[in-house]
Each structure stands twice: as structure tokens, then as C-alpha cells.
Amino acid sequence: SLSVDNKKFWATVESSEHSFEVPIYAETLDEALELAEWQYVPAGFEVTRVRPCVAP
């Protein structure tokens, strides 16, 4: 099958004044980091952490 098993990760994104967490959907932690950097670094943010979303 061609289905992709995307998992939810939380990326911590920082600017000079703010820090916030955004959801990233990817297959692996490395891919989540790449996606977060691709989305947020060009906008002037720094991705400081990516972690798996742990269900309660």
C-alpha cells in the first residue's frame, strides 16, 4: 500500500522574543526536524527542539 504512517511531533520554534511549539507530521524524528527547519528557518525562526508527541 502507499499509505504513509505519519506521526505527530512537537517542534519548539524560537524567535528573538518568543518561543512556541508547533505540531509537525512526519514519519521519523529526522524528517520532522527537516520539515520544521524548512518551514520556519526562512521566516527567521530557530528550531531548537523536536520531540515525539506522547499520547496521554
Rank of each mutant, 00 (worst) to 15 (best):
S1I: 11
S1K: 07
S1C: 15
S1V: 10
S1H: 09
S1W: 10
L2Q: 11
L2S: 10
L2R: 01
S3Y: 09
S3N: 10
S3V: 13
V4G: 12
V4Y: 10
V4W: 08
V4A: 11
V4S: 12
V4R: 10
D5R: 14
D5F: 14
D5W: 11
D5N: 14
D5S: 14
D5V: 15
N6V: 15
N6H: 08
K7V: 08
K7P: 10
K7R: 07
K8Q: 10
K8D: 02
K8G: 05
K8R: 08
K8S: 05
K8Y: 13
K8M: 13
F9D: 01
F9Q: 00
F9T: 00
F9E: 00
W10Q: 02
W10E: 00
W10D: 00
W10Y: 07
W10R: 01
W10C: 15
A11H: 01
A11N: 01
T12E: 02
T12A: 04
T12G: 03
T12K: 06
T12W: 06
T12N: 03
T12Q: 05
T12R: 08
T12D: 02
V13A: 02
V13G: 00
V13M: 05
V13F: 06
V13I: 15
E14N: 07
E14P: 01
E14V: 14
E14F: 07
E14A: 08
E14K: 14
E14L: 09
E14M: 13
E14D: 05
S15L: 05
S15K: 11
S15N: 14
S15I: 05
S15H: 05
S15G: 06
S15P: 01
S15F: 07
S15W: 06
S16P: 09
S16A: 11
S16E: 12
S16N: 11
S16G: 10
E17I: 07
E17K: 10
E17P: 00
E17W: 10
E17A: 05
H18T: 07
H18S: 10
H18D: 09
H18Y: 14
H18G: 12
S19Q: 07
S19C: 07
F20A: 04
F20V: 03
F20H: 03
F20Q: 03
F20P: 00
E21T: 08
E21K: 05
E21R: 05
E21N: 06
V22E: 01
V22S: 01
V22I: 08
V22W: 04
V22T: 03
V22N: 03
P23W: 09
P23Q: 08
P23L: 15
P23T: 09
P23I: 15
P23E: 13
P23Y: 11
P23G: 06
I24T: 00
I24G: 00
I24N: 00
I24A: 01
I24W: 02
I24S: 00
I24F: 04
Y25C: 06
Y25F: 10
Y25K: 03
E27M: 14
E27C: 06
E27H: 14
E27P: 10
E27I: 10
T28I: 02
T28F: 03
T28H: 05
L29V: 07
L29I: 10
L29C: 15
D30Q: 15
D30C: 12
E31I: 05
E31C: 06
E31G: 06
A32M: 01
A32P: 00
A32I: 02
L33I: 13
L33W: 15
L33Y: 13
L33R: 15
L33M: 11
L33V: 09
E34C: 10
E34Y: 14
E34A: 15
E34Q: 10
L35V: 08
L35Q: 06
L35I: 13
L35Y: 09
A36H: 01
A36R: 01
A36D: 00
A36Q: 03
A36S: 03
A36G: 02
A36F: 04
A36Y: 03
E37V: 13
E37R: 13
E37H: 09
E37Y: 14
E37Q: 14
E37L: 13
W38C: 10
W38R: 15
W38K: 15
W38G: 13
Q39R: 08
Q39Y: 14
Q39W: 14
Q39N: 06
Q39L: 15
Q39H: 10
Y40C: 05
Y40F: 08
Y40L: 04
Y40G: 03
Y40I: 04
Y40S: 04
V41M: 07
V41N: 14
V41D: 03
V41G: 15
V41R: 09
V41H: 11
A43I: 09
A43V: 09
A43E: 09
G44F: 02
G44H: 01
G44P: 00
G44V: 01
G44R: 01
G44M: 02
G44L: 03
F45Y: 13
F45H: 03
F45T: 02
F45K: 03
F45W: 07
F45G: 03
E46S: 10
E46L: 09
E46A: 08
E46W: 14
E46Y: 15
E46C: 11
E46P: 01
V47P: 04
V47R: 00
V47T: 01
V47E: 03
V47F: 00
V47C: 04
V47H: 05
V47M: 00
T48E: 03
R49S: 15
R49K: 15
R49F: 15
R49A: 15
R49W: 12
R49G: 15
R49N: 15
V50W: 02
V50I: 13
V50M: 04
V50S: 00
V50G: 02
V50N: 01
V50T: 02
V50K: 00
R51Y: 13
R51F: 08
R51N: 05
R51V: 13
P52W: 10
P52F: 09
P52I: 11
P52Q: 09
P52D: 07
P52K: 05
C53A: 09
C53M: 06
V54N: 13
V54T: 12
V54I: 13
A55Y: 13
A55H: 13
P56C: 07
P56H: 11
P56K: 04
